[in-house]
């Protein structure tokens, strides 16, 4: 049996992944609020309504998911929390952050992953004879179309009797700052490749010359060089600009995950093999410290 945990709209992508892996096999969605998924799954196991605390869900799923099952989770902050421990408790293999499947031979699942922040890919073989928990990167599989008339099964009784040793308290919303990069049409975005805090001035001068807003990748915020509301990515802002300049940004999937709407993406990076060049429309191989002053000068002249 193939289970997918329905935590958000990744559920429909996981449905397609399930179909890709095991065409025609019975697929089941499990979750706390997933009744609307009946058109996409053979069965929907409803766990009731409560905050999806992984420390509560893990014993619950271990109790109700038959051993040997395949469980698909999104590779996001929820899947990272639940998945590794779940695989141990189910006695199943764990394959994290899958970006592709090359089929199944006997009890061997062939998957594709990425390492070193996407700089190289790897073929992995996985023994699924005792089942597997697999997390899948979002955006790899398209969302499934409605094709089923599933059966709703109430498993809400299963939660009784579980006392989690980690208890959900509250959600705190990210602070919003004085800038709102989500509304900007042109973003000049800087990453760790800028090297030093002093060099940040080079990027600020360029963005000023262009009349564009300044954005950044996560390490710039971690280093406290710029404020969190300027961070683009899965744990930052989702932006929809028309033009995005990626300066010294390697192109991790967590960063690219925050760029929507297919902008004209121009990347400057000193590494010609940087993954950002796969996502970019136009690429420049250059050292920012040399290139930016020349570029800023020419932008000023062009106005």
């Amino acid at each position: 049996m193939i289970f997918i945990y329905a935590s958000d709209d990744t559920a429909l992508e996981l449905a397609t992944a399930a179909e890709t892996l095991f065409p025609g096999e019975k697929r089941i969605a499990i979750g706390t609020k997933c009744n609307e998924l009946l058109a996409y799954f053979d069965e929907v196991w409803s766990l009731g309504e409560f905050y999806p605390n992984a420390e509560l869900l893990r014993p619950l799923l271990t109790a109700i998911v038959p051993s040997g099952s395949i469980v698909l989770l999104p590779h996001n902050t929820f899947g990272l929390d639940l998945g590794p421990g779940l695989s141990v408790k189910l006695g199943a293999a764990y394959v994290p952050d899958v970006v592709g499947f090359d089929g199944i031979e006997g009890a061997t699942l062939k998957a594709v992953r990425q390492e070193y922040a996407g700089q190289v890919s790897a073929h992995v073989h996985c023994d699924i004879s005792r089942g597997a928990v697999i997390t899948i990167r979002s955006g790899i599989f398209r969302a499934a179309e409605p094709s089923k008339t599933g059966q709703l099964i109430d498993h809400s009784a299963a939660v009784a009797g579980i006392t989690p040793r980690r208890r959900f308290v509250e959600l705190i919303q990210a602070e919003s700052g004085d800038v709102d990069i989500t509304k900007e049409e042109v973003l000049v975005s800087v990453g760790r490749g800028i090297g030093d805090k002093e060099n940040l001035a080079l990027v600020e001068e360029l963005s000023e010359a262009m009349g564009a807003a300044l954005a950044c990748s996560r390490p710039i915020v971690d280093a406290k060089w710029l404020d969190k509301p300027r961070q683009v990515g899965t744990s930052g802002q989702t932006v929809k600009p028309k033009v995005y300049l990626a300066l010294g940004i390697s192109g991790s999937f967590q960063h690219l995950g925050g760029i929507k709407g297919n902008p004209f993406l121009l990347a400057v990076n000193k590494n010609p093999k940087a993954p950002i060049f796969q996502a970019a429309s136009v690429g420049v191989v250059a050292d920012l410290v040399e290139f930016l002053p020349v570029l800023t000068e020419k932008v000023r002249a062009a106005k």
């Binding site: 262009m210 796969q278 290139f291 570029l295 062009a302």
Partner: peptide
């Protein structure tokens, strides 16, 4: 897939090409 169209040239030439593209996209206000 094709990936990015990689620009070639000296620093000066690269900067000129980038400015040309940015202007065409209306990215220089």
């Amino acid at each position: 897939g094709a990936g990015a169209e990689m620009l070639e040239g000296s620093t000066e030439e690269l900067a000129d090409k980038v400015v040309g593209l940015l202007k065409a996209k209306g990215a220089i206000k």
